[in-house]
Design a protein around this nucleic acid. Structure first.
Length: 259
DNA sequence: ATGTCGCATTCCATGCGA
């Protein structure tokens, strides 16, 4: 069972890249973020033609999340429960794992929160509080659960090329990292950190200032696993080569294989 | 010092969000 997450930064501009990814990597489930389009503008036929089911939660211009799955998506819901939000940042569903079991999977686009002295930062923190509350509910189900997405959180100093530069940023402020830790402390496992202690496992490089060429990256896309999912974790990969494409997203995908 | 994108607007230039 292969579950992946990718912030595509406009799904309409990334159709060839997305098709190539589905053919080459063949994930069982792909969680997408930053669709930047409404549901009816999503390239549904192009994805379905590759044998996938599609569930979208889009909006005009910005944000937008989707689940793409080889098997039908059951028990789906749009929006983060308990959090009234005009922005489309959360979608959840249940899929069969092909071995008689199921995985519950969510695609999350957590708010950026910059600048921290604006109302965008309290919005980010409120979203994180609601995510913590919902994760607590989901963990009580004792299911295999993967909370995947662009968290816009740098968990630790080894996850950013220069911690000093990012000290005051909404992605790295102590309060942000504290809430991310509170989420993990519910009993979730950061899939990448379950497999390696290596620094610089980046998933994002800014388009500006030659960030990719200088490897000035951030690790902000995460797969958080319930204990039942973590028990079956086999490996984690970050698809860095996506950043070398012709018109790449500023994020690359992260994915995990489960037994 | 930021060397960039992608979307929307009444729209061929600018603002916004990242």
């Amino acid at each position: 069972m292969r579950i992946a997450s990718w912030n595509v930064n406009s799904v309409r501009l990334r159709i060839p890249a997305l098709q190539d990814y589905l053919r080459r990597i063949a994930p069982d489930v792909l969680c997408l973020q930053e669709l930047k389009c409404q549901n009816e503008q999503f390239p549904r036929a192009e994805i379905e033609d590759l044998g996938y089911n599609v569930l979208t939660h889009g909006q005009k211009g910005f944000n937008g999340v989707a689940l793409v799955s080889k098997t039908p998506i059951e028990e789906s819901s749009r929006g983060l429960p308990g959090f009234e939000d005009v922005q489309s940042r959360y979608i959840e569903g249940v899929v069969a794992d092909g071995a008689g079991g199921v995985f519950r999977v969510a695609s999350i686009y957590l708010p950026n929160g910059n600048p921290p002295d604006s109302d965008k930062y309290p919005y980010k923190l409120a979203f994180m509080d609601a995510l913590i509350a919902h994760a607590r509910t989901l963990l009580a189900f004792e299911e295999r659960l993967v909370l995947a997405g662009d968290y816009n959180v740098i968990p630790a100093a080894e996850d950013v090329y220069d911690p000093g530069v990012w000290a005051g940023d909404a992605l790295f402020l102590p309060q942000t990292r504290g809430k991310f830790r509170a989420l993990l402390n519910l009993g979730l496992v950061d899939a990448l950190r379950a497999t390696t202690d290596a620094p610089a496992q980046y998933t994002f490089w800014d388009y500006q200032a030659g960030a990719w060429q200088k490897n000035n990256g951030l690790r902000i896309d995460h797969l958080l696993l319930s204990p039942q999912a973590a028990d079956r974790l086999q490996s984690v990969a970050i698809d860095r080569e996506l950043r070398t494409a012709d018109k790449p997203s500023d994020h690359v995908s992260i994915r995990a294989d489960f037994s």
